[in-house]
Design a protein around this nucleic acid. Structure first.
Lengths: 197, 197
DNA sequence: CCTACCGATCGGTAGG
DNA sequence: CCTACCGATCGGTAGG
């Protein structure tokens, strides 16, 4: 292997911060992962915090791209929700270490970067609210739904998949997205109250 | 304040492990929380690991009690699922620090205790599968549901609430449980495919 | 429960 | 990118 660069160091940080946590990972751990001395990392980075900032920011920007995509997308609420679900899962599964570091270690960011990331994610969540609101207005979704609550629940369900989903299991990412969309729109039930009317 | 005992130390561990993470909390941090020197904690506990073990075990035993409760409970699948949902949320919200330490720090347990906790939680999750399976068999739930997947999704949704739910917001725990049960059984949609038949 | 302390490890720097 | 090193902090112990 040739000389390492900053993105190699960030790559190692994604993996180890996800698996051992930010505080459970030392600069020497990161160095070992790269075949370097811990102190050598400081020629690529000025602090350990900076690595966490980088990983969180790259995840943030992926979510922002998806939100922009869905905001300008035409279609029914169900279609746009499907796009959000599949896009969100794509981000989580394409780089699971990046995603898990984003979700679990964001709280250990330096205060100003932490606020920045939280505000970004609030904005991202707003897209979920808009799509659900659209569905309530159009009659696709039940009008009595608490939109903010529903958005929180949908995101909780999606983010929780990082704790157990493996693309090598019974479902691939795409069919997982289909199943989740199905569950969220029609529920577990057979809708007997309606079909037996 | 009088002399502290072991359960005071565990109480401090619940809070700080949840807020700062296991590796982000030092014995001196725990001591400060209790008005003691860090080294004084070793008269109550033989290691820092032991505190994490205690917190995880007390959460585990709560989940086990709920599972036993639901296993012997009669009723429809929807009713038993409602009991699981409300019971699970009750555990998460009654001691949010304990719950968050259980969910987020379990991976930092010593290997044998980690395996023990994971096996317990798998068994707990089995109760969700049984109830969903019951619903599929009875015709309450859609028969084509992937039971193991659905159980994972329901638990993901429930556990994710620890990241945002506050009992001082628009919903109390009980109405949050109602909303979640509603979403999971009937979905967001107005079931037009059925009602327009 | 405190004081005094242990060796190990932490994030980080200087100088090459 | 390494060697050599810094002060601070870590989990934990001994002795009272």
């Amino acid at each position: 292997m040739t000389r390492k660069n900053r993105s190699d160091v960030v790559a190692a940080a994604r993996v180890l911060f996800a698996e051992q946590g930010f505080h459970g990972t030392s600069m020497r751990d990161l160095g070992k992962e790269l075949g370097l001395m811990g102190s050598s990392l400081y020629s690529h980075v000025v602090s350990k915090d900076e690595l966490l900032v980088d990983v969180v920011r790259e995840a943030s920007s992926r979510f922002q791209v998806l939100a922009d995509d869905v905001r300008q997308m035409p279609g029914t609420a169900a279609e746009r929700l499907a796009h959000l679900i599949h896009g969100h899962l794509q981000i989580l599964t394409e780089d699971p270490h990046q995603a898990r570091t984003f979700l679990n270690e964001i709280r250990f960011l330096p205060e100003s970067e932490r606020k920045e990331a939280v505000e970004m994610f609030d904005l991202y969540q707003q897209t979920f609210r808009e799509v659900i609101q659209q569905g309530c207005a159009s009659g696709e979704f039940q009008s009595e739904i608490d939109v903010a609550l529903a958005a929180n629940l949908v995101l909780s369900l999606l983010n929780g998949t990082t704790r157990w989903f493996s693309p090598h299991g019974t479902h691939d990412v795409s069919s997982l997205g289909d199943e989740i969309h199905q569950l969220l729109t029609t529920g577990l039930g057979n809708s007997p109250a309606v079909s037996l009317q």
